[in-house]
């Protein structure tokens, strides 16, 4: 579904990503793990064309997407939920969903506002409230729902469990499992290994902009030294 081959990225003169390669298969949930500042968000932004990569190749369903503008990448069915949610705070919940709306796509689940309200009941109650009036957890749900309105085939979730209440984190895990059941490929960035274990099939660990480890979640659990080296605070 998503193949990343040897990409890099710079902020000014500083190199923040170096020769990153990994894959996300159809219907697979992959956790991108690493500490603060390891390069997780930058990797996602590079996939979306929001940060430029000067080397390597990114393919989505076999098509190279590295040179495409962000909106074209999204229109191909790659959804993106940013780290800080980026809700349009002046727009109502329904209007936020409207912005994300795209035409249905072959081979991808089709989402309508009503179907999303089943997944996120909190949003239904507040559908006419302004996005800015909602709690952090609700904004996180709205951000995911908004991206799902584009009927994506794969979705990038940047730290969905960050800064929200434990109850909501559990709900978030269920949501990701539901998305997987619908057949979506998910790339999830996380610092919270516990959360990642709940939902992911495989893990990719990056540190200082480089991939340090790739394997199944199960394998990772059997190797505490890797966990301690790259993930422990």
């Amino acid at each position: 579904m998503l193949e990343i081959q040897g990409i890099n990225a710079f902020y000014g003169q500083a190199q923040v990503l170096q020769d990153i390669s990994f894959q996300v298969g159809a219907g697979e949930v992959v956790a991108l793990l690493g500490r603060n500042g390891a390069g997780k968000s930058t990797t996602m932004k590079t996939l979306m064309g929001m940060v430029n990569s000067t080397a390597g190749d990114i393919r989505f369903q076999g098509t190279p997407i590295k040179a495409l503008p962000t909106h074209r990448i999204c229109q191909m069915g790659l959804g993106y939920v940013p780290e800080d949610r980026r809700i349009f705070s002046d727009l109502t919940v329904l209007e936020n969903l409207e912005v994300g709306k795209q035409k249905p796509r072959d081979g991808a689940p089709v989402w309508e506002a009503e179907k999303l309200f089943e997944l996120f009941p909190n949003l239904k109650e507040r559908k006419n409230n302004a996005g800015g009036q909602m709690s952090g957890g609700e904004q996180q749900m709205l951000s995911i729902a908004r991206t799902l309105m584009g009927n994506p085939r794969a979705i990038l979730l940047d730290e969905p469990s960050e800064g929200i209440a434990p109850v909501i984190v559990e709900q978030m895990a269920k949501t990701i499992q539901a998305l997987k059941k619908e057949g979506l490929a998910v790339l999830l960035s996380e610092q919270n290994l516990h959360f990642a274990k709940l939902v992911s099939d495989r893990a990719v660990i990056i540190e200082k902009g480089e991939v340090r480890y790739q394997g199944t979640i199960r394998e990772l659990e059997e190797k505490p030294e890797i966990r301690d080296a790259y993930l422990a605070v």
């Binding site: 979306m48 909106h71 999204c74 980026r86 349009f88 705070s89 912005v99 994300g100 584009g150």
Partner: peptide, 24 residues
């Protein structure tokens, strides 16, 4: 209108509007 909604969204965060598939 949908156009108006998109414009108001872009007023706040144009990059995000692009990441949702809208040609800015």
């Amino acid at each position: 209108t949908r156009w108006g909604t998109l414009v108001r969204a872009a007023t706040q965060d144009r990059e995000m509007v692009g990441a949702l598939g809208v040609n800015q």
